[in-house]
Design a protein around this nucleic acid. Structure first.
Lengths: 67, 67
DNA sequence: TATTTAAGTCAAGCTTACTTTACATAAAGA
DNA sequence: TCTTTATGTAAAGTAAGCTTGACTTAAATA
Protein backbone atom coordinates (compact mmCIF):
# COMPACT_ATOMS: atom_id res chain seq x y z
CA UNK A 1 0.00 0.00 0.00
CA UNK A 2 1.58 3.26 -1.16
CA UNK A 3 0.43 6.60 0.17
CA UNK A 4 0.91 10.29 -0.40
CA UNK A 5 0.94 11.33 3.24
CA UNK A 6 4.47 12.70 3.18
CA UNK A 7 3.69 14.91 0.18
CA UNK A 8 0.36 16.04 1.61
CA UNK A 9 2.12 16.87 4.86
CA UNK A 10 4.65 18.94 2.96
CA UNK A 11 1.93 20.71 1.01
CA UNK A 12 0.17 21.58 4.24
CA UNK A 13 3.36 22.37 6.10
CA UNK A 14 2.79 19.84 8.83
CA UNK A 15 5.24 17.83 10.89
CA UNK A 16 4.56 14.16 11.60
CA UNK A 17 3.70 15.16 15.15
CA UNK A 18 1.22 17.80 14.01
CA UNK A 19 -0.46 15.42 11.57
CA UNK A 20 -0.60 12.78 14.30
CA UNK A 21 -2.42 15.25 16.54
CA UNK A 22 -4.90 16.11 13.81
CA UNK A 23 -5.58 12.42 13.24
CA UNK A 24 -5.63 11.54 16.95
CA UNK A 25 -2.88 8.96 16.63
CA UNK A 26 0.70 8.87 17.84
CA UNK A 27 3.61 10.35 15.95
CA UNK A 28 5.05 6.85 15.62
CA UNK A 29 1.90 5.71 13.87
CA UNK A 30 2.15 8.45 11.26
CA UNK A 31 5.81 7.65 10.77
CA UNK A 32 5.15 3.93 10.41
CA UNK A 33 2.39 4.47 7.85
CA UNK A 34 4.52 6.90 5.83
CA UNK A 35 7.38 4.42 5.88
CA UNK A 36 5.10 1.58 4.84
CA UNK A 37 5.57 -0.38 8.04
CA UNK A 38 1.85 -1.08 8.16
CA UNK A 39 -1.43 0.09 6.66
CA UNK A 40 -3.78 2.42 8.52
CA UNK A 41 -7.11 1.08 9.69
CA UNK A 42 -10.10 2.03 7.53
CA UNK A 43 -11.35 4.58 10.11
CA UNK A 44 -7.93 6.23 10.17
CA UNK A 45 -7.84 6.32 6.37
CA UNK A 46 -11.23 8.06 6.42
CA UNK A 47 -9.93 10.57 8.95
CA UNK A 48 -6.97 11.42 6.75
CA UNK A 49 -9.20 11.77 3.71
CA UNK A 50 -11.55 14.05 5.61
CA UNK A 51 -8.66 16.14 6.90
CA UNK A 52 -7.13 16.72 3.47
CA UNK A 53 -10.51 16.88 1.75
CA UNK A 54 -9.57 14.03 -0.56
CA UNK A 55 -10.84 10.51 -1.17
CA UNK A 56 -9.14 7.53 0.40
CA UNK A 57 -8.10 6.49 -3.10
CA UNK A 58 -6.42 9.88 -3.58
CA UNK A 59 -4.21 9.26 -0.57
CA UNK A 60 -3.73 5.50 -0.45
CA UNK A 61 -2.93 3.37 -3.49
CA UNK A 62 -3.65 -0.31 -3.42
CA UNK A 63 -0.65 -2.17 -4.82
CA UNK A 64 -2.69 -5.22 -5.72
CA UNK A 65 -4.78 -3.14 -8.07
CA UNK A 66 -4.98 -4.61 -11.55
CA UNK A 67 -3.01 -2.27 -13.80
CA UNK B 1 -18.93 2.49 10.00
CA UNK B 2 -21.92 1.64 7.83
CA UNK B 3 -21.57 -0.37 4.65
CA UNK B 4 -23.57 -1.53 1.67
CA UNK B 5 -22.13 -5.04 1.47
CA UNK B 6 -25.42 -6.80 2.08
CA UNK B 7 -27.13 -4.87 -0.72
CA UNK B 8 -24.20 -5.31 -3.09
CA UNK B 9 -24.22 -9.02 -2.32
CA UNK B 10 -27.91 -9.17 -3.14
CA UNK B 11 -27.40 -7.24 -6.37
CA UNK B 12 -24.70 -9.65 -7.40
CA UNK B 13 -26.55 -12.71 -6.12
CA UNK B 14 -23.79 -13.77 -3.77
CA UNK B 15 -23.95 -15.59 -0.46
CA UNK B 16 -21.75 -14.49 2.42
CA UNK B 17 -19.62 -17.57 1.79
CA UNK B 18 -19.20 -16.76 -1.90
CA UNK B 19 -18.27 -13.16 -1.17
CA UNK B 20 -15.83 -14.34 1.49
CA UNK B 21 -14.15 -16.57 -1.10
CA UNK B 22 -13.89 -13.71 -3.58
CA UNK B 23 -12.33 -11.52 -0.89
CA UNK B 24 -10.11 -14.27 0.51
CA UNK B 25 -11.50 -13.98 4.01
CA UNK B 26 -13.66 -16.25 6.13
CA UNK B 27 -17.43 -16.29 5.95
CA UNK B 28 -17.52 -15.13 9.56
CA UNK B 29 -15.49 -12.08 8.65
CA UNK B 30 -17.99 -11.06 5.96
CA UNK B 31 -20.82 -11.64 8.40
CA UNK B 32 -19.14 -9.63 11.15
CA UNK B 33 -18.47 -6.69 8.83
CA UNK B 34 -22.03 -6.72 7.50
CA UNK B 35 -23.35 -6.83 11.05
CA UNK B 36 -21.06 -3.98 12.10
CA UNK B 37 -19.09 -6.07 14.56
CA UNK B 38 -15.85 -4.57 13.28
CA UNK B 39 -14.47 -2.57 10.38
CA UNK B 40 -12.54 -4.21 7.55
CA UNK B 41 -8.85 -3.47 7.19
CA UNK B 42 -7.97 -0.93 4.49
CA UNK B 43 -6.59 -3.65 2.16
CA UNK B 44 -9.83 -5.61 2.52
CA UNK B 45 -11.87 -2.49 1.82
CA UNK B 46 -9.83 -1.98 -1.37
CA UNK B 47 -10.46 -5.60 -2.37
CA UNK B 48 -14.21 -5.16 -1.98
CA UNK B 49 -14.14 -1.92 -3.95
CA UNK B 50 -12.17 -3.59 -6.72
CA UNK B 51 -14.51 -6.55 -6.79
CA UNK B 52 -17.66 -4.45 -7.13
CA UNK B 53 -15.95 -1.84 -9.29
CA UNK B 54 -16.81 0.91 -6.83
CA UNK B 55 -14.86 3.27 -4.62
CA UNK B 56 -14.31 2.53 -0.95
CA UNK B 57 -16.54 5.51 -0.18
CA UNK B 58 -19.31 3.96 -2.27
CA UNK B 59 -19.28 0.86 -0.08
CA UNK B 60 -18.24 2.09 3.35
CA UNK B 61 -19.62 5.20 5.01
CA UNK B 62 -17.68 6.86 7.76
CA UNK B 63 -20.04 7.69 10.60
CA UNK B 64 -17.78 10.39 11.97
CA UNK B 65 -18.09 12.31 8.74
CA UNK B 66 -19.17 15.89 9.22
CA UNK B 67 -22.66 16.14 7.78
C1' DT C 1 29.77 24.20 20.81
C1' DA C 2 25.37 23.34 22.79
C1' DT C 3 20.55 23.14 22.04
C1' DT C 4 16.40 22.39 19.68
C1' DT C 5 13.46 20.29 16.21
C1' DA C 6 12.00 16.70 12.98
C1' DA C 7 12.41 12.24 11.71
C1' DG C 8 13.51 7.34 12.40
C1' DT C 9 13.41 3.24 15.13
C1' DC C 10 12.85 -0.31 18.89
C1' DA C 11 10.56 -2.87 22.66
C1' DA C 12 6.63 -4.13 25.27
C1' DG C 13 1.94 -4.03 25.77
C1' DC C 14 -2.96 -3.37 24.51
C1' DT C 15 -6.83 -3.47 21.07
C1' DT C 16 -8.89 -4.78 16.87
C1' DA C 17 -9.07 -7.63 12.62
C1' DC C 18 -9.37 -12.08 11.28
C1' DT C 19 -9.00 -17.38 11.68
C1' DT C 20 -10.79 -22.09 12.73
C1' DT C 21 -14.10 -24.92 14.91
C1' DA C 22 -18.41 -25.54 16.39
C1' DC C 23 -23.22 -25.10 17.24
C1' DA C 24 -28.16 -23.00 16.40
C1' DT C 25 -31.95 -21.47 13.63
C1' DA C 26 -34.99 -20.75 9.73
C1' DA C 27 -36.37 -21.62 5.04
C1' DA C 28 -36.66 -24.55 1.07
C1' DG C 29 -36.81 -28.78 -1.20
C1' DA C 30 -36.61 -34.10 -1.70
C1' DT D 1 -39.77 -35.74 7.78
C1' DC D 2 -35.02 -35.37 6.63
C1' DT D 3 -31.54 -32.83 4.57
C1' DT D 4 -29.44 -28.96 2.69
C1' DT D 5 -28.39 -24.08 2.39
C1' DA D 6 -27.75 -19.48 4.22
C1' DT D 7 -27.17 -16.86 8.13
C1' DG D 8 -25.94 -15.78 12.90
C1' DT D 9 -23.10 -16.35 16.81
C1' DA D 10 -19.51 -17.78 20.27
C1' DA D 11 -14.89 -19.16 22.01
C1' DA D 12 -10.06 -19.27 21.57
C1' DG D 13 -6.15 -18.20 19.14
C1' DT D 14 -2.98 -15.47 15.79
C1' DA D 15 -1.84 -11.29 13.31
C1' DA D 16 -1.97 -6.47 12.52
C1' DG D 17 -2.80 -1.69 14.12
C1' DC D 18 -1.63 1.44 17.55
C1' DT D 19 0.22 3.17 22.23
C1' DT D 20 3.84 4.89 25.46
C1' DG D 21 8.53 5.53 26.54
C1' DA D 22 12.99 5.85 25.18
C1' DC D 23 16.97 6.42 22.39
C1' DT D 24 19.51 8.00 17.93
C1' DT D 25 20.71 10.92 14.09
C1' DA D 26 20.80 14.98 11.13
C1' DA D 27 19.90 19.73 10.31
C1' DA D 28 19.29 24.31 11.90
C1' DT D 29 20.42 27.83 14.99
C1' DA D 30 21.81 30.51 19.20
Amino acid sequence: MNNRLKVLRAEHNLTQAQLADLLNVSRQTVNAIEKGKFDPSLPLAFKAARLFKLTIEDIFQDEEAVS
